[in-house]
Design a protein around this nucleic acid. Structure first.
Length: 113
DNA sequence: AACCTGACTTGGC
DNA sequence: TGCCAAGCCAGGT
């Protein structure tokens, strides 16, 4: 089970209308400072099977990227799920951040190869 | 194998 | 507050 596998398993488990930060995904996957790896994993993921739009940065904003229009799509998809963007284009993490219990996290990771 | 570059985060000035 | 540098991980050269 690679780190990427754990990252994808966690992201797939994020409920509709909730979000997770890159750092939070990394910590749940067992890496304290692996936020960059999560970013790379999202960049390389299969958009059909991974709800990549539910991963945002620690400031509650959609991280800008060098190429493409996926930032726009990401916001549209999140709003379609009920996530509301406030001033400065940020979402209220106190409201939308997914906070699973350690037990749930373990259950998710147990189901990975 | 060394080196660089990111959809990142933090701690320390 | 705000900026900077260091940590960290995967992939491509």
């Amino acid at each position: 089970m690679s780190l990427n596998d754990r990252i994808y398993a966690i992201v797939r488990a994020i409920p509709r209308g909730k979000v997770l930060t890159y750092g939070a995904v990394a910590r749940m996957a067992g890496v304290t400072r692996g936020a960059r790896a999560v970013g790379w994993a999202m960049n390389a993921c299969d958009p059909e099977t991974v709800p990549w739009q539910r991963v945002i940065n620690a400031q509650g904003r959609i991280s800008p990227r060098a190429f493409g229009e996926s930032e726009i799509i990401q916001r549209e998809r999140l709003e379609a799920e009920g996530v509301v963007f406030g001033i400065h284009d940020q979402v209220d993490l106190d409201v939308y951040l997914w906070q699973p219990s350690p037990l749930e996290i373990r259950a998710i990771l147990d189901g990975v190869d």
